[in-house]
Amino acid sequence: MSNPNSLEHDIKTLIIEALGLEDIDASDIGSEQTLFGEGLGLDSVDALELGLAIQKKYGIKIDADAKDTRNHFINVASLAAFVTARQAA
């Protein structure tokens, strides 16, 4: 079992690296902070890039058209829960 806290930290680092966020580090991203639009301010290209980075890093498949995909990408906590569930499956 992976420690959820460290998984969240890993995802924050992944977001920063994959999306080229300058001048911020993992501690600047709150686990419950909204990633897209308001909050961190990511856009639709970021959504695609982040989806690709998550698939590559965690070896999971994300269906971009699935209805619940949007919910998984709300914040770091929801992404961590999604990755954990997919890896267990």
Binding site: G20, L48, E49, L52
Partner: peptide, 9 residues
């Protein structure tokens, strides 16, 4: 490898 959407765009 899949293409980076950012690079592609």
């Amino acid at each position: 490898q899949p293409l980076s959407p950012t690079q592609f765009s």
